[in-house]
Computed example of a mutant assay.
Amino acid sequence: MIDHAHDLRSLREATDRLLTAAAKLDNAAMAEASRLPGWSRGHVLAHLARNADALVNVFEGRPMYESASARDADIERDAGRPLVEQLEDVRNSAAAFQAVADAPQDWSRTVELRNGVTDSAGRIPFRRLVEIELHHVDLGIGYELTDLPDEFTAREIDFLADRWSGHPEVPPVTLSPGDGRTWRTGGTEGAPVTLSGTPAQLLAWLAGRGDKGDALTTAGGPLPLLPPL
């Protein structure tokens, strides 16, 4: 069951964690490489700010981004700013998103995201939480997949397993954290594969983070490759 109020509370906490951690950096650290290929830490923070703006657009019925090229240009424009400006932008854009999300509205309505993707309005706070939590990890400043809240990790595994479900490039995959839970993803073609490991290791494979699943135990075949997110 979607609980947007719970997700908004979690989002505020996650945003505060990220801002507190990033405030310990300096201007030189902003220009250093993040864990995302081709992006500095400044790119990651600029993306988070512009993503908040884009989700305000979603709530208010406008296109999420003017275009893919405009999105990329805005991130590139803002990536080189000093730390204090980056933090202020992330904080202010997050507050603007929270203000729109706190307004009375129909949370069951369908909204449109990028590339024609649609979702219920009630799922948008969790989508924003994903951006904050995973990109906090991407900053490479001491916050790891193993530090993510357990509830978040399980829900993100749910979300990404569903995303790759039925994908023709992915064989049938069973994900097992060894605690009685299982997730299934992938298509119907090819030999079934079972991947076993901790929830953080399973998320690493699904989200293309960390070791990208190399620490998982595989049975039935090699570690499948996933398309880019």
Results as ranks from 00 to 15, higher is better:
180 G>W: 14
116 G>L: 06
90 V>P: 01
213 G>C: 03
171 P>Q: 06
148 L>P: 05
181 R>K: 12
115 N>T: 12
179 D>W: 13
138 D>M: 11
210 G>M: 06
81 R>Y: 03
9 R>T: 12
140 G>S: 09
170 V>I: 13
186 G>I: 04
154 A>F: 13
191 A>F: 08
149 P>I: 00
139 L>C: 14
196 S>K: 13
172 P>L: 01
173 V>L: 09
106 D>V: 05
228 P>Q: 14
207 A>I: 05
21 A>Y: 03
67 S>R: 10
79 A>L: 01
224 P>F: 02
35 R>L: 15
118 T>P: 13
118 T>W: 11
205 W>M: 02
23 A>N: 04
221 G>I: 00
199 P>L: 14
26 D>C: 03
112 E>R: 00
132 I>L: 13
14 A>C: 05
28 A>S: 13
61 G>R: 07
216 L>F: 03
75 I>W: 01
76 E>H: 03
183 W>F: 12
22 A>K: 07
87 L>G: 03
157 I>A: 04
86 Q>D: 05
14 A>P: 10
54 A>G: 02
229 L>P: 08
162 D>A: 12
78 D>Y: 10
61 G>Q: 11
54 A>Q: 00
2 I>G: 06
154 A>Q: 15
120 S>W: 04
112 E>Y: 05
35 R>F: 04
168 P>T: 04
25 L>T: 11
45 L>A: 02
167 H>W: 08
171 P>M: 12
163 R>I: 13
200 A>H: 11
202 L>I: 15
72 D>G: 09
